[in-house]
Deep mutational scan, measured.
Amino acid sequence: MEVRTIKVFTTVDNINLHTQVVDMSMTYGQQFGPTYLDGADVTKIKPHNSHEGKTFYVLPNDDTLRVEAFEYYHTTDPSFLGRYMSALNHTKKWKYPQVNGLTSIKWADNNCYLATALLTLQQIELKFNPPALQDAYYRARAGEAANFCALILAYCNKTVGELGDVRETMSYLFQHANLDSCKRVLNVVCKTCGQQQTTLKGVEAVMYMGTLSYEQFKKGVQIPCTCGKQATKYLVQQESPFVMMSAPPAQYELKHGTFTCASEYTGNYQCGHYKHITSKETLYCIDGALLTKSSEYKGPITDVFYKENSYTTTIK
């Protein structure tokens, strides 16, 4: 009895394709271990004539594949690729409408935090270190965002349907971005203890939790000093293409032309909904596939993004 075979390709990165001759009487799992086709788990399936010449994702289970996976995804987590594939199996079914010149995501599976993050990423200057993220990001900007969303979920250790947080998501993504040249110098002034300067680099240099107003941050924000008295913390120097200011959701007025974009969060910790506000020729609110415009805006804002380049204080 002759062994019926077909020729397929296996890959971990969709760049390096490895030619395989597979036995049609055995499952993919018996031949390769966990195997995925377009995100779908085909591990328990036997090869079919229609699979001839198709590319299958496999887990990096030998040295060659491990090197290829690390170079593309910059992670050695053995569960990463499987999590990416199972997320992709959902995100490829989502709709990605162009809204006001940006790629958004039609609401499904509690994905409003991903839509808000995706919209924000198209408006701030950011370059990702893992080629996987950078490639998928370019495709997302062009309207094909399924891979990018699935990668975000995998890097953030999230599953489809789980509630997510924009600030946490951005923080994970910033860790995989090139923020080497970003720098922030802060000064804390206390009447009792004097003053202390701190220099922050990388992710810490672009994120701040405690106030939404970048102007206020430049002037000074009140913080408790270690001595128990009130101290003032203010920005001395900022070198970065953008800054992200966050605070627990509270009524906040966004003035046209003073910011790049913002995240609105309605609801409580267990259950809520994100919308995205962007400042173009007027203010726009993007909620999944829905767009509304207004000249002014007041609502429960939790993150505001500002364009920056270089700032030095005039406070002496």
Rank of each mutant, 00 (worst) to 15 (best):
I6D: 10
K7L: 12
T11P: 06
N16R: 14
N16E: 10
T19M: 13
D23H: 12
M26R: 10
T27A: 14
G29Q: 10
G29R: 04
Q30P: 05
Q30V: 11
F32V: 08
L37K: 12
K46G: 10
T55D: 09
F56A: 07
P60R: 07
D62V: 07
D63L: 07
L65Y: 09
R66L: 13
F70G: 13
T76I: 10
P78L: 12
F80P: 05
L81H: 13
G82R: 12
R83S: 07
S86K: 14
N89M: 15
K92R: 14
W94R: 06
Y96A: 02
Y96N: 10
L102G: 10
L102V: 08
T103Y: 10
A108W: 02
N110P: 00
Y113M: 04
Q123S: 06
L126W: 07
F128Y: 08
F128C: 04
A132G: 09
L133P: 05
Q134E: 09
Q134D: 02
Y138F: 14
A142K: 14
I152L: 07
A154M: 07
Y155W: 05
C156V: 06
D165E: 10
T169I: 11
T169S: 08
L173N: 02
Q175A: 12
H176S: 05
L179K: 04
L179R: 02
L179D: 10
L179S: 05
D180P: 05
C182N: 00
K183P: 07
K183R: 13
T199V: 09
L200S: 10
V203D: 01
V206K: 01
V206H: 04
Y208S: 04
M209Y: 15
M209L: 11
M209W: 15
T211H: 02
L212Y: 08
L212Q: 04
Y214C: 05
F217V: 06
G220H: 01
Q222H: 11
I223T: 13
P224C: 08
C225K: 02
C227I: 02
C227M: 00
C227F: 03
K229D: 15
Q230W: 13
L235D: 02
S240L: 01
V243F: 04
M244L: 06
M244D: 01
A247C: 06
P249A: 00
E253D: 03
H256V: 15
T260C: 12
T260P: 02
C261E: 02
C261D: 02
I277N: 06
K280T: 03
K280A: 11
T282R: 05
T282Y: 09
Y284V: 10
K293Y: 07
S294G: 05
E296D: 15
E296T: 15
Y297H: 06
Y297C: 00
K298C: 11
P300F: 12
I301Y: 00
K307L: 13
T312S: 13
T313Q: 14
T314W: 15
